[in-house]
Design a protein around this nucleic acid. Structure first.
Lengths: 152, 152
DNA sequence: ATAATTACTACAAGGATACTAGGATATGGG
DNA sequence: CCCATATCCTAGTATCCTTGTAGTAATTAT
């Protein structure tokens, strides 16, 4: 068993990861001050521009970014990087984190040993808490040790 | 948007959840002392017996349970409930928890802003830590407030 | 023997992810 | 006013993984 099957357990979707990376890149490119075109981000992050379009449309719906159309248009942050948490971004992409299908009211299996559910609720809370306490600004500071940085 | 799409982000596979539920049930049925047939567990937990077979084969490979064949056979714990962590069970089912494809050595995308990976490593650690600190025995005690309990 | 029960392997349906594609709409600069 | 540049919006689709089902062989208590 030297092979490692490609699994999806506990996985954060690539859409969410792309979103986070892209917002991060956006900020580094000055997207907190002026609109940046998707083409640039796509190139910088090596992500399909068409795919990015979809991602940013969702981000826009969640007010995380604002889009301006037309020439010289692009996207910029919809609010300060300090107040954009990873949880929020992930929520915008894929909805709430779901460890199991079964959290209280949801369509529970009603199995007898449902006394185990506190377990998944607890895990969800743990994960949510982690993601809620990291902001885009944190990413920036982590990357540059507090210094301000820009990418041309 | 009243509809909730069925997502898989951060999901623990049903296989893993079934496994945990089943071991829990096994213990409650006395599986720490004598072998219990899968049919019973399947019925009690309302899980396909055939599917359970596969699950328990994996559990066996990981020494979490021992199987005894033939009439009056079944499965029993391979070690004390106190030393079976959820992480171990999940690992047996689906391998290590993978938040993203990209953890250090793995097949990383090599994207420029890879300075974000500490994020996923951190999340993985958080999750692993949570799962590592809960044992089957904990489930039992949580369910019965410390009292001993049995199911006929 | 025989009924019970695990052990092992193969395969299939369904759904979600991760895109690709094409066009509509808007806007700043010449 | 035109046109290049961008976002905006909707469909469609290949691939993979999950979640099983199915059949058969091997083993053992009674």
């Amino acid at each position: 068993m030297t092979f490692e099957k490609k699994l999806r357990n506990m996985k954060i979707t690539t859409k969410s990861r792309y979103a986070i990376r892209s917002i991060f890149a956006l900020v580094l490119m000055g997207g907190d001050k002026q609109p940046i075109a998707l083409t640039q981000i796509a190139e910088h992050e090596d992500i399909s521009r068409k795919y990015l379009e979809q991602i940013f449309m969702k981000l826009k719906k969640s007010k995380i970014v604002e889009g301006s159309r037309g020439a010289q248009g692009g996207y910029m942050l919809g609010k300060p990087a300090k107040s954009i948490s990873l949880k929020e971004v992930i929520y915008a992409m894929d909805g709430p984190v779901k460890i199991a299908d079964c959290h209280q009211e949801e369509t529970c299996d009603n199995f007898s040993s449902c006394g185990i559910n506190w377990l998944w609720s607890g895990l969800k809370e743990t994960v949510d808490n982690y993601l809620d306490n990291i902001t885009i600004d944190d990413l920036k500071r982590q990357a540059f040790g507090g210094k301000d940085a820009d990418i041309s």
